[in-house]
C-alpha cells in the first residue's frame, strides 16, 4: 500500500467514525463501541478487497459481506453510504420510523444488504449457503462474515464452523471483531473464549491473528485468506471497543449507549 493510499484510507476511517458517532447521537440509542472497533476492517473490505458495484448491487458475481453482529450496523451503513449504495444525507435518520437505516440490518429497507441480521449467531451459516451456491454455479464470489466476540458464544457458530471445514468451503472468511467487551462487561468475565485461535484451528479453519486497526495487516490477512485453498479462513482481529474516541475506548458503557451532545462534540474534536 502506498503512503498516499494509506493516508486516504485513514482519512476515510475517520470520516466513517464521525458518521457513526453522529448517527447514534441523533438516534439517542445504538451501539457505538462495536461499530468503532470494526471500522478499519470494513474500510479495507469495501475499498480494496471486495468485488462489488454499488450501481449493480445484485451482480451475481459480487463478493458478499454479512454483518453477523448486526447491532454494529452504523459502521456498515456509513460505509455503504460512502460507497454510493444509499444516501449519506439520510444517515442521521438511523432508527427512526420509516428510515432505511433500521436498528439492525434489514434487507426489506436496503435490498443491497446481503442478510437481515441482529439475532446473533446466524450470519456465518447464511454466508456458507451463499458460498456453496457460488461454488455450484462456478462463480468467483467470496463471502466475508464479521462476527462479534460475544456472538461466537452462540452454539450455531460452531455448527457452522464444523460445516465449513467439512465441506471445504474456501471462499468464505470469518472475521472475529475481538474487542473483548460484550453487553454485560468483559468477555473473559461473561464467557471466556480463549484459547480462541486454537478453537478455530481445531475446527479445521486456517486461522490468523492480527491487529484489527492496522490497515496493512488487514490487507495482507485478506490476501492470505484468498490464497488459502481447501479450507475456510478465520481472521481473529484484535480490536479496541470504541476505537478512536478516547472516552469510549475499552469502556463497556459504550457497547450500547448513545453519546450525549456534549460527548459528541468531544468525539468529533478527536476525530477531526
Amino acid at each position: 500500500m502506498s503512503t498516499t493510499d494509506l493516508n486516504q484510507l485513514q482519512q476515510f476511517c475517520k470520516l466513517i467514525r464521525r458518521h457513526i458517532v453522529e448517527m447514534i447521537t441523533e438516534a439517542k440509542s445504538g451501539h457505538p463501541g462495536g461499530s468503532l472497533s470494526a471500522v478499519e476492517i470494513l474500510a479495507v473490505l469495501y475499498k480494496e478487497v471486495m468485488r462489488h458495484d454499488p450501481k449493480n448491487p445484485h451482480w451475481p458475481d459480487r463478493d458478499r459481506f454479512i454483518l453477523g453482529k448486526g447491532h454494529a450496523c452504523p459502521v456498515l451503513y456509513a460505509i455503504m453510504a460512502e460507497c454510493g449504495y444509499t444516501p449519506v444525507s439520510e444517515l442521521k435518520t438511523l432508527r427512526q420510523l420509516g428510515s432505511i437505516y433500521q436498528g439492525h440490518p434489514d434487507r426489506r429497507f436496503i435490498p443491497a444488504l446481503e442478510a437481515s441480521t441482529g439475532s446473533l449467531g446466524q450470519g456465518l451459516s447464511i454466508g456458507l449457503g451463499m458460498a456453496l451456491a457460488a461454488r455450484l454455479d462456478h462463480r468467483p464470489s467470496r463471502v466475508y462474515v464479521m462476527l462479534g466476540d460475544g456472538e461466537i458464544q452462540e452454539g450455531q457458530i460452531w455448527e457452522a464452523a464444523m460445516f465449513a471445514a467439512f465441506h471445504k468451503v474456501d471462499n468464505i472468511v470469518a472475521i472475529v471483531d475481538y474487542n473483548k467487551i460484550q453487553l454485560d462487561g468483559w468477555v473473559k468475565d461473561i464467557m471466556e473464549l480463549e484459547p480462541l485461535a486454537e478453537k478455530w484451528r481445531a475446527f479445521g479453519w486456517h486461522t490468523l491473528e492480527l491487529d484489527g486497526h492496522d490497515l496493512e495487516a488487514i490487507r495482507s490477512a485478506f490476501a492470505e485468506a484468498a490464497a488459502t485453498k481447501g479450507r475456510p479462513t478465520c481472521l481473529i482481529a484484535h480490536t479496541i471497543k470504541g476505537k478512536g474516541v478516547s472516552f469510549m475506548e475499552n469502556n463497556p458503557k459504550f457497547h450500547g449507549t448513545a453519546p450525549t451532545r456534549e460527548e459528541l462534540a468531544l468525539a468529533l474534536k478527536e476525530l477531526a
Binding site: A115, G121, S125, I126, L128, M130, A160, H167
Partner: peptide
Amino acid sequence: PDRFFSCGIAEANMVAVGAGLASSGK
C-alpha cells in the same frame, strides 16, 4: 450428490445455510 448438503445433526445451521443458498438463487 453435488446438490445435496450433509449438515450433520445441526438443524439451526442447516436452516440458515438454506437461507444463504436461497439468497443466491437456489
